[in-house]
Amino acid sequence: MDAETTVRTLFTLAGVTPPEDEMAAFIEGYPATRASLDLLYAVPDTPLTDGILVFRPAD
């Protein structure tokens, strides 16, 4: 899916409709957004993977 389709779809799913000039800016910036995520997914896994989102039922 290309950046424009992806960004428009994600905003539609979120129920938010920026005007076209702002939508264009989000689309233009989307490759950089994905690149920042690639950086995170490149961090090697460790045993700390477990428990990254903590839920304590007694809280």
Binding site: T6, V7, L10, F11, L13, A14, V16, P18, E22, A25, F26, G29, Y30, T33
Partner: peptide, 8 residues
């Protein structure tokens, strides 16, 4: 512009 990126 900042917060809207949270949808992406």
């Amino acid at each position: 512009s900042w917060v809207g990126t949270g949808a992406l």
